[in-house]
Amino acid sequence: MSAPGSLQFCRRLLRRQLTLAVRRPVEIGNPLLFFTMVVALFPLGLGPAPDKLADFAPGILWIIALLSNLLTSDAVFRSDFEDGSLEQLLLSPQPLYLTVLAYIGAHWLITGLLLALICPVFALMLNLPASAIATLALSLLLGTALLSLLGCIGAALTVGLKRGGMLISLLILPLYMPVLIFGSAAVKGAVVGSPAGPYLAIIGAMVCLAIALAPLAIAAGLRISVDA
């Protein structure tokens, strides 16, 4: 018997998280269903005029992506905290920085990636011009990675609390705002035909910064939560 290498252990954790998610398909379906329902709310609130909806579509889609990510990030560490796996993770000889990244990666694959894949359907429902749909999917693909990284900071800090759900939005929503600004700007830019590359580059830069720093905050938050 030998201790697995760090990357091997991360792959193993990623596989574990994905298996757990696949065995509870409702957990994967819920955020997507939530997304669908909130999309349906906007025409009811704003009126069904297609050009008006198309005008607001980039912002609407990005805000819903933000909310559905927020709602799911609360659960990233919760079950592991409740059944004691988290204690074992913290005591493991593996670098917590990388193992935390495995959790975030699993969360992003389950929520962000799926959302980016199915968003064209919602974009069409909200009458977003077809030329902007590729940019929307790309910006969501990048942006949701950032949302997962930030959301996990909130999840780590509130995992030990009984009522973390509302609190996590208070902690994390202010941090989501730059992503919202650049993500929706990229889509809006694509609608009017300007290049979306610079916006996506800025989001990519923020993702890089978050990959470097967020796991440190998450690791610290998990240690504090388990300690409390």
Binding site: M1, S2, P4, T19, D80, Q88
Partner: peptide
């Protein structure tokens, strides 16, 4: 510890093979 650290959705084999403590293969 007091908590078993066993995931209900995984089989005992998977629980041990993918254990979060990461101390062995």
């Amino acid at each position: 510890g007091h908590l078993p650290g066993v995931k209900a959705m995984l089989s005992p084999r998977e629980n041990l093979a993918w254990h979060a403590s990461g101390e062995g293969t």
